[in-house]
Amino acid sequence: MERFISENYRPDHILCSRDYFQWLFRISSSADRAPVMCAWEGDELTAILGCLNLTMQWGSHHQDVPAVGLTHWMSSKRAPIGVGWILARKALSCCDLAITLNSSKLGSPFFRSLGWSFRESIPRYLCILDRQRCDILASSTEGRTLDRLVFSPPHSTQNPELIDFANYAPRWELYPQMLFSIKRSSEYLQWRYLEHPVFTYHLLVSGEGHRPAVCVYRIEQAYGIGEGSVGRIVEFFHPDDENGRIEGSMLLYFVLKRLRVVGCAFAEFYCTSEAFGQTILALGGGVEPPGHYVLPSRLTPIQSIRHDINLTFSLPKGLPMPTEAGLYVTRSDIDGDQPVRHMQV
């Protein structure tokens, strides 16, 4: 597997890291199998497709829906025509519902042809924390746009009461904005963020255990045409009522303040849910206009062009189409927030 990826892609591809591979596919160090579909020609590996087992909420808080997250769909130049698609078909034979982020220019047309639902880009919310540091990173002419995105919380905003993650036990019927989402169970958050082998995520929970506000973020060091640090918010949600919105606002305010204190130029949050994005807007931030490049999203190294995160999902019969108000997908779903490279090469 490592040789296949190294020879066909890059030797420092993150999937060449054994620790990362084991974490992503949730296998032990002694395991000899992983949920990765493989195509072989003789003893030569020609294509792979990773399958993450997911538990989703899809139109109901009372019944979990098994799904597969498709990741790392790769093939060698010598792979026979059709083999990639055979792997995708096999992956779908396990679960009716499949979801993937960041499908490539090759992958996207495949999924569209299969009749899957496709979103070109997940909205990106931005909040400027240090205007001068943003100018160093941005090297763009979006001066006026940046001025409109500066963190400016209302004077009355207070700090939240943080609680221990051990008390995290949300009643999901209080979160209709997440009616269509990967279920953010404590087990999922524990694996996804607290056990990540590369990134240091900060997971904050406030309010009450059965109706918490949650924010997860990490700090990334940007380099290239400029240098600086950026706050990547990868989860943010709260109950859908007045108290929940207040709690969420306090928590996000706390996080943004913290990011500013440690010197982050800006914070970003990719999220399909306008309900949660509104909180950033209320604190002075805004959504990156469609088709515009405002601030870099790829930071290691900095790339001064816009990169969208697309979303694709199959919709089998019997399952409802997700509503705009109820769909919750963020950058960290599936493999959307992964390290660029394996640093130990």
């Binding site: 025509i81 059709g82 990639g84 698609w85 090759l106 047309p109 495949f110 042809s113 299969l114």
Partner: peptide
């Protein structure tokens, strides 16, 4: 697929479907 330039992975999938 060797004589027709348009015969790539995507069109192959569309053909089979």
């Amino acid at each position: 697929h060797q004589t027709l330039e348009q015969w790539d992975s995507l069109s192959h999938m569309k053909l089979v479907t």
